[in-house]
């Protein structure tokens, strides 16, 4: 379902401030994607957690390369 990003703007801003100040290694897009997944799936916790897991797995695969 399309999601109006403006609706979670304040929420994202709070997370972005924390990320930028303390955890700059984490891309802001990842946090934004997790927030949107959680927002859209508040009525379906399983789906929310599956998407979150997949997003983090993808990020870690790109960030931590196998030797």
């Amino acid at each position: 379902m399309p999601m109006n990003k403006i609706e979670v703007e304040e929420l994202l801003k709070v997370l972005e401030d924390i990320r930028a100040a303390k955890y700059p290694e984490i891309p802001s897009e990842l946090i934004q994607s997790i927030v949107l997944a959680e927002f859209e799936n508040q009525d379906n916790r399983t789906e929310g957690s599956i998407i979150t897991r997949r997003l983090i797995d993808d990020f870690l695969r790109q960030s931590v390369h196998e030797g």
Binding site: E10, E25, I26, L30, I31, L60, S63
Partner: peptide, 30 residues
């Protein structure tokens, strides 16, 4: 090497989790 990678993955996961965990109080106060 494999332990270094595994540790790094955990570190990054902790950071992601901390952003949300710390975000809850910050967002509530805000």
């Amino acid at each position: 090497e494999d332990m270094v990678r595994a540790r790094r993955r955990v570190e990054l996961c902790e950071m992601i989790h901390n952003i949300f965990e710390e975000g809850i109080d910050a967002y509530r106060n805000n």
